[in-house]
Simulated scan of single mutants.
Amino acid sequence: MSMMEYLLKVKTIADNLATIGEQVSEKDQVLQVLGGLGADYNPIVASIIAREDDISIHFIHNILLTHEL
């Protein structure tokens, strides 16, 4: 599946959970996205995890979509 499809799948799951009252934090969404990536993305995942600041899910989307190109 393309990166866009993968990111939309994770967003859909989070949105569906929110609909039934189970909010998924942005941090948990970031961790879920990063945890589901293949070995090709290990350097990116490592650099993101090494950061001390919180990273938004939108920032993660941009990084991953750029890397896919």
Rank of each mutant, 00 (worst) to 15 (best):
M1V: 06
M1I: 06
S2K: 09
M4N: 10
M4V: 09
E5I: 11
Y6D: 02
K9Q: 12
K9C: 11
V10Y: 04
T12E: 03
D15F: 11
D15Q: 15
D15C: 06
N16L: 14
L17I: 04
A18N: 15
A18H: 13
A18F: 13
T19H: 13
I20C: 07
G21W: 05
Q23P: 12
V24D: 00
S25Y: 03
K27C: 14
K27W: 10
Q29P: 00
Q29R: 05
V30F: 01
L31G: 12
L31Y: 13
V33D: 01
L34W: 08
L37C: 00
L37Y: 03
G38P: 01
G38D: 11
N42I: 08
I44F: 07
S47T: 12
I48Q: 00
A50Y: 01
E52V: 07
D53G: 07
S56L: 01
S56P: 07
I57T: 08
I57Q: 07
I57N: 05
I57H: 02
F59S: 14
I60P: 01
I60G: 00
H61I: 03
N62R: 14
I63N: 06
L64W: 04
L64T: 03
L65N: 04
T66Q: 14
H67M: 06
H67S: 09
L69V: 11
